[in-house]
Amino acid sequence: MSDIYGILGICLLSFLLISSFFRGRSKRRARHQAEPGSMGEIVGDMASRIASLQEEIFRLRSENEDLRGAQSMGAPPPHDFDEFMAEKMSNEFRERTRLETAMKIMGVTSPWTVGELKVAFRERVKIFHPDQGGTAQQFTELQAAYEELKPFSKPDGAATH
């Protein structure tokens, strides 16, 4: 990974040296741009190559940051990065599914406020409490759904749309 950065750095440094050489000769450069195979055409070609190298540097840096972030979260070494990302996406899917299931149990739609969640919980308790004809398992699931959704509730004064 560092070898790529070294190569890209050398290319960038070469471009900077060449461009500074031609910076003071703008009239000559403008005259040569019209001629095919001229120095202006070569500089233009180099500029486009440098732009693509800069994009590649940006992409590699962001990938490197992702890898470092993943490793700081306890990710396996980079050769297992694809497996790590697949597991992470699977965990995010499970989390979303868990929240959707809790929303169905509670009978709320997103976004909900703290007050709406409490009202929904009290209404469901009247239905699913073991003393009211529900089962202990239904009541336990209701309590778990309430606890699951509580951190994601908006404050009572928040506008819902």
Rank of each mutant, 00 (worst) to 15 (best):
L12E: 11
V125M: 15
P77T: 07
G24C: 08
M1K: 14
P76C: 00
E123L: 09
S20A: 13
G69I: 03
E35D: 09
T135G: 07
S26R: 15
E41L: 08
D45R: 06
S52E: 07
E147H: 13
L99Y: 09
M39S: 11
K88G: 00
E148A: 15
D131R: 09
R28W: 13
S72M: 07
R124H: 08
A70K: 02
I10D: 05
E65K: 04
V119F: 06
A144N: 14
M106P: 14
V43Q: 05
L16M: 06
L16P: 00
P78T: 06
M106S: 12
K154N: 01
T97W: 00
E147A: 15
Q71R: 09
M73C: 03
R122W: 05
R96W: 04
I10Y: 06
S14C: 08
K27R: 15
T135P: 02
K126F: 06
V43W: 07
R96G: 01
V108R: 01
E100F: 05
L117M: 02
V125A: 14
E116S: 08
A136M: 07
M1R: 12
L17E: 00
Q71T: 04
K88R: 15
K150C: 01
N91M: 13
M89A: 10
L60T: 11
A51Q: 02
L17P: 00
T97I: 01
G24F: 13
R96I: 10
E123S: 09
R94P: 00
T135V: 12
F84L: 14
H161Y: 11
N64E: 13
P111Y: 08
R68H: 05
R59P: 00
D156Q: 01
P151M: 04
F128M: 15
G24S: 10
E116R: 12
Q33C: 05
R23N: 07
Q71P: 00
F58R: 10
I7E: 08
R29K: 13
M89F: 05
F81Y: 14
F128A: 09
L8R: 06
A144V: 09
E95I: 01
M106K: 08
R122G: 01
L13N: 08
R61E: 14
M73Y: 03
P36V: 08
T135E: 05
M39D: 07
F21T: 13
P111D: 04
